[in-house]
Design a protein around this nucleic acid. Structure first.
Ligand SMILES: Nc1nc2c(ncn2[C@H]2C[C@H](O)[C@@H](COP(=O)(O)OP(=O)(O)OP(=O)(O)O)O2)c(=O)[nH]1
Ligand SMILES: [Mg+2]
Ligand SMILES: [Mg+2]
Length: 409
DNA sequence: GCCGTTTTCGGCCCGACTGTTTTCAGTCG
């Protein structure tokens, strides 16, 4: 039987290639091409082996398509095999430590013979490291913190957990009068399933005051950076929070930037450039003149694009659709008309049927279906014939009683 | 490595914060 190679595995390969090239100091644009491909593949819903024309994917050309085909066949990739021999493989994990990028890892490797994590743990406690160019006392202290976070926390957080954490922080931030408006941005706003960090955008009168308020949040464990427009902290849960402050006149451009994704940003900035414009988080500019920035709609409009919902901003073809006015309408909560899979407290469900029906009506459902287990599922308190008929009777009665929602059985 | 109604070669997004820097590299968003 043929071994199935997942999109994730292929994305990992391209990311590893990018990391190795980075350590070797290779061409930054080539590295970006590998990283972009990795990100794209990670975000695809369809398995790569079901995609007819790999070259039609944005950022996938002849070379990468061929490499994907090799990997899909389950064969080793010569490029990767060769690159792996050129560096110490143990160095790759060091890149995940905050504060350690390719240049510093390279220095540690060349000057102190660091080959892997264990070596780094040793030299970070020693004196030699302070002799290295660019490695001062403060940096070494920061790297120690980066190391302990790397060992302590998992890399990404589930959306629901991050969302709750973000809402709590937003409420706290809003307490001071200098804050006018707060928006959650980044992958949380794009509703990815997992979140790398919480990105929050604030507008108001006094940036300094806002940043002071942020670092005084009781759940802050560590301050990574605190500047005039941008600060980063780590919460006690290990989740990182990035906060950016903007004046109201560039709030839209700021939100557009901070929502991302990175690939989407690069794509729209490239389009702007072709049109003789420049986009940054401060607005859309023609020369020095600000032409858009108050709202996100303005930003997209300035590029001749329809507004793109955050959930679609992944540079997977949404920009082309926006240009052609062919973007799909996303399903919203109000579009959901029914729930056809509900258990009740007649079996293993938590709520009485009436409560579920009332709630359904409240959130705008037209009908629900009760699908309790039958007696073949005795471990889930499945109903026998007699009980089932009794339940049907209750449902009939409820349907008489309740208006505006129907219960199916 | 990718890409193109300005290009098939020569570009490739733009900016903030920090430390050790005497003018900016490195890392990160
Ligand atoms: N233009 C531009 N914007 C960037 C870049 N890196 C990050 N951004 C913007 C877009 C991102 O969505 C946003 C927040 O950065 P993050 O690193 O937190 O990424 P994001 O939240 O998308 O994903 P995450 O779940 O945190 O890994 O900042 C960049 O290199 N260029
Ligand atoms: Mg983020
Ligand atoms: Mg972030």
């Amino acid at each position: 039987m043929e071994k199935k190679v997942s999109n994730h595995e292929i994305a990992e390969v391209f990311n590893e290639i990018a990391d190795i090239l980075d350590l070797k100091g290779d061409n930054v644009f080539k590295i970006r091409a590998y990283r972009r491909a990795s990100q794209l593949i990670e975000s695809l819903e369809k398995p790569l082996n079901e995609i007819e024309e790999l070259e039609s994917l944005p950022g996938i050309g002849k070379e990468l398509a061929e490499k994907i085909r090799i990997l899909l066949r389950g064969e080793p990739l010569p490029t990767l095999e060769k690159l792996r021999k050129e560096i110490e493989p143990g160095l790759l994990q060091l890149l995940k430590i905050r504060g350690l990028g390719p240049k510093r890892v390279k220095t540690l490797s060349e000057k102190l013979g660091v080959k892997e994590l264990e070596d780094f743990k040793r030299v970070i406690e020693g004196e030699e490291i302070l002799e290295l160019p660019g490695f001062g006392k403060k940096l070494v202290e920061d790297l120690k913190k980066g190391l302990s976070e790397f060992q302590e926390y998992s890399r990404r957080t589930r959306l629901d957990i991050a969302k709750a954490e973000a809402e709590e922080l937003v409420e706290y931030l809003g307490k001071i009068k200098e804050v006018l408006k707060i928006e959650v941005a980044g992958s949380l706003r794009r509703r990815l399933e997992t979140i790398g960090d919480i990105d929050i955008l604030v507008t108001g009168r006094n940036a300094k005051r806002v940043m002071e308020h942020l670092v005084n949040y009781p759940k802050v464990k560590e301050i990574l950076a605190q500047g005039e427009t941008k600060s980063s902290v780590v919460l006690k849960t290990g989740i990182q929070v990035d906060v950016r402050f903007f004046a109201p006149k560039c709030f839209g451009a700021g939100l557009q930037y901070f929502t991302g994704s990175k690939a989407h940003n690069i794509a729209i900035r490239t389009i702007a450039k072709q049109k003789g414009l420049k986009i940054s988080e401060y607005g859309v500019f023609r020369g020095k003149k600000l032409v858009a920035g108050k709202s996100e709609q303005e930003v997209y409009q300035a590029l001749g694009l329809d507004y793109i919902e955050p959930e679609m901003r992944e540079d997977r073809g949404e920009i082309e659709l926006a240009r052609e006015k062919r973007l799909p309408r996303l399903v919203e909560l109000k579009d959901i008309k029914a729930d056809l899979q509900l258990h009740s407290n007649w079996t293993d469900g938590r709520n009485p049927i009436e409560e579920s029906a009332e709630k359904a009506k409240q959130i705008g459902y037209q009908y629900i279906a009760i699908t309790d287990h039958s007696k073949s599922q005795y471990q889930a308190k499945g109903l026998d014939e007699k009980k089932l008929l009794e339940e049907f009777k209750e449902i009939d009665n409820l349907n008489q009683k309740l208006k505006g929602v129907e219960i199916l059985k």
